[in-house]
Amino acid sequence: MTDYRTVPTVCPYCGTGCGMLLEVSGGRLAGVLPQKGHPVSDGTLCIKGWVANQFVESPRRLTRPLVRKGGKQQAVPVEEALALVAGRLRDTVEKHGPDAAAFICSAKCTNEEDYLVSKIARAVVGTNNIDHCARL
């Protein structure tokens, strides 16, 4: 028999924090409903929340790091991608100073993750060039 349950969560799209229910049916994420009585959004969502289930299994979703090699993007292990980014970042900062680097964080991340990005930018690299996706 098929199953149906709803899981309350917070919309991941922006920093507003609207309440949504993820509909789970047949073991798969099947849809979204606005959560009634939620202190932020009380049963309403914008279009991004209403379709938030679609990106989870989207074939266009980036699920592995891609590195351009010989003009072509290739999937590589996370460790390799991280080492590449860290190396380039270090080179750039050594050559041009900390303000040659900038950090863009995301409203899709948790407060804690964004706090850590701020720490990397300010305490590790030494720049105040930090911004977030909601301004784009």
């Binding site: 028999m1 098929t2 199953d3 149906y4 349950r5 709803t6 309350p8 229910l21 409903l33 959560q35 009634k36 009585g37 939620h38």
Partner: peptide, 26 residues
């Protein structure tokens, strides 16, 4: 919160007793 849920015989004890007017779903 009162959330829509499909109960089977095994899980029926978790069914809510009340249905608040402010929490209607399709």
């Amino acid at each position: 919160s009162h959330l829509p849920h499909l109960f089977t015989a095994a899980g029926i004890e978790d069914m809510a007793e009340d249905y608040p007017e402010g929490e209607r779903y399709p």
